Amino acid sequence: MSYIDILKNAPDLVSPGISACQGCGAELILRRVLQIAGPDSIFAIPPGCMAGAGVVGWNEANGQKTPVHITLLDNTASFLSGLSRMYQRKGRSDVNIVALAGDGATADCGFQSLSATAERGEKMLYICYDNEGYMNTGYQRSSTTTRGSRTSTTPLGSVISGKPQEQKYMPLIMAMHNIAYCATASPSHMKDFIEKIQKGLAASKEGFAYIHVFSPCPTGWAYKSHEGISIARRAVKSNMFPLWECKNGTYRLNDTNPKPIPVSEFVKGIGKFKALSDTAISEIQHMVDARFELLKKLSES
């Protein structure tokens, strides 16, 4: 069955009207993950855009049509560890245990419990929707925020001009935990996205699986709400967000991208990058090229 047929036939497990921003990348990710995981799933979603806008609902009603726990920012993976083990003791392998967390709850506040959970090989699928900041509280920088990005805590001015530090590259950090499955995905490449969710769910029955998803944000990043998919596509084409996967220690690039577009093309029209100088763009380009070469070497080995 093609991925189009899968999505046509799978029910939408989020209420039609939610309070996510118009053009929200994370909302699309939430809906597609739920369609693939199906109703026999239990989710943990820590505070963030999708906990506040996608799940909570109104009048004590849940906007998500599966069981969901809104965990703390720092305990999502450890919470699901206990839940996963409970179902294992009951002999229930038919329930999908899934986390859907933002980059702040993944790379920053929740990294300690996430790393420990991955190291133990707990049986679950952990998905990070990375919109490169703490968007739900006004767009503060996170460790996955791209260098040079304007945020409320890295403003543009004479003292500081965007985030001065390099981006933490979470997918490779997680792959180095020797987990059952690790991948990157983008809503602009839906076939690849769906296949990786399916692989991640299958791997979660054997051990820990992690998928890092590019999640453009029109509100924080300052671009027109209809441009999210084209921006996500440019991120892949420029190697700012390369698509790859690692299963049991074997790496594979899903898009070798023989003719990548320059980073200068990716940042066009994105307000958070409006103050980037030619020197800053060149430095980001160097980082992107070096990271892609590393991924190529890992895949070739």
Rank of each mutant, 00 (worst) to 15 (best):
Leu156Cys: 07
Gly63Lys: 06
Met190Pro: 04
Gly38Cys: 08
Arg233Glu: 13
Arg85Val: 04
Ile211Ala: 08
Phe43Ile: 03
Ile173Arg: 07
Pro47Gln: 03
Glu195Gln: 12
Asn248Gly: 12
Gly121Val: 05
Lys205Thr: 11
Thr153Asn: 15
Pro39Leu: 03
Ser113Lys: 02
Ser301Met: 11
Glu227Arg: 14
Ala101Asn: 06
Gly157Val: 11
Lys65Tyr: 14
Cys182Phe: 01
Ser225Asn: 15
Glu166Ser: 10
Met176Lys: 13
Asp192Phe: 11
Met170Gly: 00
Gly148Cys: 11
Glu27Lys: 12
Asp192Ser: 14
His226Gly: 07
Leu73Gly: 05
Lys196Trp: 02
Phe193Ile: 13
Glu119Pro: 00
Phe266Glu: 02
Gly157Met: 11
Ser2Pro: 15
Gly54His: 06
Lys259Ile: 09
Ile45Leu: 04
Phe241His: 14
Ala10Thr: 12
Cys128Ile: 09
Gly48Leu: 02
Ile194Ser: 03
Glu132Arg: 10
Phe266Asn: 03
Ala185Val: 07
Thr76Arg: 00
Asp289Trp: 02
Ser15Ala: 12
Leu34Tyr: 01
Ser186Gly: 09
Ile194Gly: 03
Lys123Gly: 02
Leu80Met: 15
Leu13Val: 08
Met170Cys: 07
Pro216Thr: 12
Gln35Ser: 07
Arg141Thr: 12
Tyr139His: 12
Ser15Tyr: 07
Cys21Glu: 04
Gly148Ile: 06
Pro39Ile: 07
Arg85Phe: 05
Ile284Cys: 08
Ala235Thr: 04
Tyr126His: 11
Gly82Leu: 12
Pro242Thr: 07
His189Ile: 02
Tyr210Ile: 12
Thr256Gly: 01
Gln285Thr: 15
Lys274Arg: 15
Leu7Phe: 13
